[in-house]
Design a protein around this nucleic acid. Structure first.
Lengths: 255, 255
DNA sequence: GCTGCCGCCCGTACAGTGTAAGCGTACAGC
DNA sequence: GCTGTACGCTTACACTGTACGGGCGGCAGC
């Protein structure tokens, strides 16, 4: 966790926030209650109890304040959620700069994809937030990793339109795998097949068999399986795109 | 009071489903209000105004009934949403049976992926529902397309564990692409950059350029670009898997 | 006919949501 | 001292899901 709050004191969520106005009589304000503290509390709540638990009143309680007091630091709830996305993306673990060789760049691309995956899996609910707001939540913290990913694809030899396409493909894959996996997880812990109708045992044999394999597999290896596939394809595509020797970056858009 | 629905609201309403108490001479009950009608109204509401608009009261109004009356046909709201997923998946457009050749099977696989994509894009909110409930919503209507997809992969020559993996990869891609695209769409129609801070013009040049390409591209072609990539990879994987003397262990086949 | 009965629908009520409006108070500058 | 301002609190309103109880209509038995 790159941007982990060093304070880390709490260990207790809900009520631990003390009055705090007893502290120093100095010029300091009384227990700041900054926007950042609010956002951090919201992130914690989201990670621990899901997006539905992120409620103005719950967040307020977590920072020791009434709900309406939050509105002095966030415009409304959407603004708070934008702050949550921003805060999470500010923790994006950028990999170390790559070398110039094709293998280095491929490895770097893999590392960037892993960083995305790690970030999203650490806070699965942000996927829902990203899907919900789509384009409106475009903070610098969110765009920087996108920029790096696109830059990497260009460096691997893709033309601008191909880089955009490749980013969309890989991004979709990363996003979707997080959706599928965390959906699975939350359902697994959710209470042991509550709804009732278990699947009939003999219909859907393929599904039954596949489920056992999916459960047995390591999700990370499964993810790499698909990722390697795409990176390999990108390298061939790049090679084709670079055909006219030095001339990088022009045309060759449509295959 | 209860006997006079003619005076009843009817004013604005959602869309005034149907009169329900026409004629009334026959032996018929008074417009059954079956679970199916409720689910259909919920789907319509979800498609037109988003998942947040699916409210017991709103659904009730759409079928001409008070909210509490719905509870005689659905256990609770989650049950209703399960019904929504079920109803949508029952509309899955199964492609025609394939021939036995490898090309036919590949084309069939493509068609199945397209059917998934079409179904999800027609009702984008079900992605959120699937992600939220994950495993608990496993009706026959949902599992049948999964079974077909797995069956197709097996037919293409994949071993059971490879078929499971490939399904996960392609499924993630389909899911993710729908998330990205519909997120984009809903944001585009959502009100013209409401939040405020537009991105600084010169930072993130790659992002800016990529956005223009992504907007210009046809989403379906972009989707096919990634899909073909995966199907091609599957065919090689299948060929390798079916060849006994060639050891499958090359780095990404079996791990 | 009448009398129960029972499935369906409604009205009311309660806890919880986001947030608009106004009040109280502690500190800054004078 | 006084005053303006920033911040937190209280109250209030329109919503949400749903527990509870009551009423109305069509049925079986007689």
């Amino acid at each position: 966790m790159g941007a982990a709050p060093s304070v880390n004191l709490a260990s207790e969520t809900e009520m631990t926030e003390d009055p705090t106005h007893t502290a120093a009589g100095g010029p300091g304000a009384r227990a700041p209650l900054t926007r950042e503290r609010i956002v951090e509390a919201a992130v914690r709540l989201m990670d621990e109890e899901g997006l539905a638990a992120v409620t103005m009143r719950r967040v307020g309680r977590a920072v020791g304040v009434e709900a309406m007091s939050l509105y002095h630091h966030v415009r409304d709830k959407d603004d708070l959620l934008d702050g949550v996305v921003d805060h999470v993306m500010r923790g994006f673990p950028f990999p170390a700069e790559p070398g110039p060789s094709s293998e280095d760049l491929a490895a770097y691309g893999r590392a960037v994809a892993h960083a995305w995956r790690r970030t999203l899996r650490a806070h699965p609910a942000v996927v829902e937030l990203l899907a919900r707001r789509g384009r409106s939540a475009r903070s610098a913290a969110l765009l920087r990793p996108v920029e790096v990913a696109l830059w990497t694809l260009r460096r691997m030899g893709l033309s601008p339109p191909d880089a955009a396409r490749a980013f969309h493909v890989i991004g979709s894959y990363v996003m979707g795998s997080v959706v599928l996996e965390t959906g699975r997880i939350s359902a697994a812990e959710g209470g042991g097949g509550a709804t009732g109708h278990d699947l009939p045992p003999d219909a859907f044999p393929q599904v039954l068999e596949a489920l056992s394999y999916l459960d047995a597999d390591d999700p990370d290896e499964r993810f790499d399986f698909g990722l390697d596939l795409m990176i390999e394809a990108i390298r061939t595509l790049a090679g084709r795109s670079r055909e006219p020797e030095r001339d990088v970056g022009t045309s060759n858009a449509t295959r």
